[in-house]
Design a protein around this nucleic acid. Structure first.
Lengths: 158, 158
DNA sequence: GCTTGAACCTACAGCGACTGGAGGTTGCAC
DNA sequence: GTGCAACCTCCAGTCGCTGTAGGTTCAAGC
């Protein structure tokens, strides 16, 4: 019971290294209930097994893809019920894809505006600096889209 | 002294409406020192003039373009010194443009991964759900880029 | 003059997902 | 037995707001 079993005996530092996480992050996930509380050594230090490593890898993988922790929590609970339909998991992933696309769209608009802004900078003085002029312009006349404020709150993390 | 002068007598709520900000946000900017403390009425309520309106519009405009408040602080201080060279302002804008581009690149990679993820979902059960399978895969074999973790901390806000 | 309700005031907690530090204990190698 | 790295808990800070609690002021209507 070592290859895919549970006993493995990783310290939190070893688990962190194995999954590319930080020690604090692992404790943070435990605090949030995303990671189960592991056994402790006689000296009260956490001891992890393969099960924990898989779970943490799942979480990190989700985070790398930009899923919020709440979505990951749902995905984890779904992953534990192989017989349920996968429509729910699919919906979560679709939602994340939509969020990513909307952030891209917003950032591309910003990119356009910023490009125009810096392209016109002739390295003169602040007095005739296009960057400052655009920002100071109350009427947004220099802007491609007069309302470049995002409709969704902000493009958060991912 | 009304058209472009200072006296105008806006309450904080009127200023918020005029600039598309929220009342709390204006107070927050004042607390950070981005907005100067305005005069007060007899009843201790803030009274703003055209100068404040221009300054707040500048800040909001910068935020809409994703500049962090610290960058906006620098840009504001530059805007007050029209004789200085504009290289510094240009550099700040270039930096922001670079940040936006790097976020776009990261998000596009995520978009690709997520597309592949959901495209293969055949609406079966969790047991053979591609979404869950990819996330649970320790070896990242299903991933386009085995290291889709961002090199910069995260793609923050904008 | 009085009442009502909206808008204002200060101060502080919370969001998301960590990160870093203080101050103390344990584990392992030499 | 001695050092020091890694562990422990708890708490504050990041960024840019947003929301709430509990109280005061303003302007309009009667």
């Amino acid at each position: 019971m070592n290859a895919s079993g549970r006993a493995l005996g990783l310290s939190i530092g070893q688990l962190a290294k194995a999954t590319g996480s930080k020690v604090q992050t692992i404790r943070y996930y435990e605090q949030l209930g995303l990671m189960p509380a592991p056994e402790r050594s006689q000296g009260n230090q956490r001891i992890y097994g393969a099960r924990h490593e898989r779970r943490l890898a799942f979480i990190r993988h989700g985070r790398e893809l930009g899923f919020p922790l709440d979505a990951i929590r749902q995905l984890l609970s779904l992953a534990d019920q192989p017989d349920r339909p996968c429509a729910e998991a699919d919906a979560i992933a679709q939602e994340q894809l939509a969020a990513v696309r909307s952030k891209i769209a917003r950032l591309r608009a910003l990119e356009d505006e910023l490009e125009r802004m810096v392209a016109c900078c002739a390295s003169g003085t602040i007095g005739d600096c296009h960057v400052i002029e655009v920002l100071a312009d109350l009427s947004h006349q220099h802007c491609l889209t007069p309302d470049h404020r995002g409709q969704d709150s902000e493009f958060g993390d991912a």
